[in-house]
Write a protein that binds this DNA or RNA. Structure first.
Lengths: 213, 213
DNA sequence: CTCCTTCCCAAGCAATTGCTTGGTAAGCAT
DNA sequence: ATGCTTACCAAGCAATTGCTTGGGAAGGAG
């Protein structure tokens, strides 16, 4: 096991590449690699050796940049949540009506699939298990903020009469949330199915349903 | 629970049975325990010792009933898929119109939350990773059957004019599927939120949307 | 040049993993 | 009593896990 032929790490690239760059840059690089692996193998199933291999270094070397495997997923998730929360608040800040705001939230969520696909997948797949640990209590907090943002918009829409008053905001929030956050599971970046098409269809169904009126 | 409720196999009918009837009962019992653990800790994160502990036996004793941990999840998933496929085909067999059939499929899927909650969660969380292995190729096959059933109904509805002709059957199928299969993540059996309420709200949104017409 | 820091390798450790082996107590039939 | 089967325990093994330690090569600063 110890005598794998992988000991010569630099492939085509020379040592010169190992020049001095910002630590933050290298960290972000490694986090991107880790996020991709966590996303398509699962966090527990991904070993630190997997991550190191994908990065072209040895597993021990990862610990020069990170305290632990856990702090990697921590960084990935907290960054994603900060971004998402900021994006949502940006939509709210536009001060439009409930229907347009609702559409804006759906749109924003689906759009983030392109640049945050891995993070969304990790959040969807692992957050539920991680949230039990104190370290990841911010996940539960974020969850509540998300819920408030969405349900407020739905309630407002019912009040103004734009949304049907028979809807249960909490339940509809869950439906919509599950819908938009699960799309990255089958969405393939760069595929023939464009995000715009998905947004159009999802928006149409969520707002008007599948039935003809 | 650990009471040795020995099955009285007095009849001893066919010799082919070889007295394995008690074994099937115990197996189902252990599978239920394993399914619950897989569902709320994840398959990889659940150890065979966890399962054995929950069952009140030692980990090695599990291997009297199962070849491997993998064959446990295999059994759980294949059983779930068979049940679901049968239920879907039952709805189709009623021979109703597209809208009622669509509603029947949504209803059936959500209803299965009650008795197959763990299995749905496992299917949602682990199938994507497992499907890569040849042993679990039936997951991909089932996936295709599900897709055909749903999209056929949607296409039929467009043809009869009950559904809007602007919908993309494949995309809408994904939306609906993700929606109904993700609900078990937050649904709590025995809670105050009844499945009927969820079904009613989900049906309303998916068919008619949130907007007032 | 020398010193210091950065970023990595080489080796390995303690714990945990899925699973195996050999044995045994209990039930039932002959 | 004898023999067979069932369902378990007790012990442990090989592999893998996250992580640690000690060192070494490279480059900027003095």
């Amino acid at each position: 096991m110890a005598t794998t032929g992988r000991t010569t790490r630099q492939g085509s690239k020379g040592r010169g590449e190992r020049g001095r760059r910002g630590e933050a840059v290298r960290q972000a690089e490694l986090l991107g690699i880790a996020a991709d692996l966590f996303a398509d193998r699962g966090y527990v199933a991904t070993t630190v050796r997997d991550i190191a291999d994908a990065a072209g270094i040895l597993s021990g070397s990862l610990y020069h940049h990170f305290d632990s495997k856990e702090s990697m997923i921590d960084e990935i998730l907290s960054t994603f949540i900060d971004q998402t929360l900021a994006a949502y608040e940006g939509v709210i800040a536009e001060g439009k009506g409930p229907k347009e705001t609702f559409e804006g939230l759906v749109c924003t969520s689906l759009e983030s699939m392109v640049e945050s696909r891995s993070a969304i997948l990790i959040y969807q797949n692992e957050a539920r298990f991680l949230a039990a640990q104190p370290r990841f209590s911010y996940l539960t907090a974020a969850h509540r903020k998300f819920e408030k943002i969405w349900t407020d918009v739905l309630k407002q829409g019912v009040k103004t009469g734009e949304f049907r008053d028979s809807i249960d905001p909490k339940l509809v929030y869950r439906l919509v949330r599950d819908t938009v956050w699960t799309a990255p599971r089958w969405y393939r970046p760069g595929g023939s199915l464009k995000p715009e098409k998905i947004i159009e269809q999802y928006m149409a169904v969520l707002v008007d349903g599948v039935a003809k009126h």
